[in-house]
Design a protein around this nucleic acid. Structure first.
Lengths: 167, 167
DNA sequence: ATATTATAGATAATTAGTGTCCTTAATGGG
DNA sequence: CCCATTAAGGACACTAATTATCTATAATAT
């Protein structure tokens, strides 16, 4: 079944916790926080860096930080950064194989009127993406701040502060 | 990258061509029409049959036909029939692993407030599905009848008539 | 200089999707 | 009743993508 990769989840969970920090944080800490391996999470963050969502600093005291305001980073940006921008539905133009007559082949060759089924699926995909474009990291952060208990939020904050101080 | 399976495309292409026929048509003909193997296409149609989108008749003169009006069969129905109804985004609740403190574990145990990221992705998915629920097989058929050249439509019709007569 | 940290490449394990083959069961026509 | 036809289902193989690890390299602060 069609799926978003778990990388998207790793990314969003990390990013929303990076917001309140005002310094770079390393993969090691983030991996520990998430309970996943550094090796794998670093691949994800390389993708986020290439998509200009985070900025990386190698070396001592290095790590990752947001490149811009979390108001300007959307779920859509993160999904595309991790999963790539290939459409969810790739028409194999099977119907073209169905008839080997000249008329149809000619029409396919023009390639100006893509398969209606394909267009419909892509339009459906856009509905999903439009929704994800409206959800920013800032919205996620603020909603979590409202939803989660103060107790959990405080423990969360303490955990990251401790990590930053240690470095 | 996340994808709809090609099975969805096979299914839709076949179904839209089944509409004008008023008799069962066999996998052999449909497979020839699409240029795919009978073995594989039959798996797809078994799924469509289980989803009550088509009705199957084994034996001589058997085959598949729609169970109901194409006005009542949506793209969504077909997608779910082929791909299953598992959500596109399965939250691993990674955040739960992040803190091993009691407060959070308690909250996770309740399991009444699923992860906000998860909820957001599912809501996005729903946007896509809502769109696909509005698109019926009948709409697809009628739009194709308007968009495609009369020449192609006629050749298409002839091809299926010939096959039905042969059986 | 050295320890730290990100980047990149190679590679392996796992899973899902795609596809085939063979057997079984049901059906209609002779 | 028998037989050809057709769907259903299980077993299996092939492919591609995802997930994951390990190693080596490059950049950086102290």
């Amino acid at each position: 079944m069609m799926n978003f990769s778990v990388g998207v989840e790793y990314a969003l969970h990390c990013l929303v916790n990076i917001i309140p920090l005002n310094r770079p944080i390393g993969i090691k800490d983030l991996a520990e926080f998430q309970g996943v391996s550094e090796s794998y999470l670093s691949k994800i963050f390389t993708k986020l860096a290439k998509a200009r969502i985070v900025q990386s600093t190698p070396g001592v005291k290095g790590g990752y930080e947001l490149t811009k305001s979390p108001k300007k980073i959307t779920f859509y940006d993160v999904v595309i950064a991790i999963e790539g921008s290939q459409p969810i539905f790739q028409c194999k133009n099977i119907i073209a194989k169905a008839f080997t007559n000249e008329a149809l082949e000619a029409e396919e060759d023009e390639d100006e009127v893509p398969c209606l089924i394909n267009r419909t699926m892509l339009e459906a995909e856009q509905q999903m993406y439009n929704f994800l474009k409206e959800k920013t990291l800032m919205w996620l952060r603020e909603t979590l701040d409202n939803e989660l208990s103060p107790d959990i939020l405080e423990k969360n904050r303490e955990w990251f502060q401790k990590k930053l101080v240690q470095n």
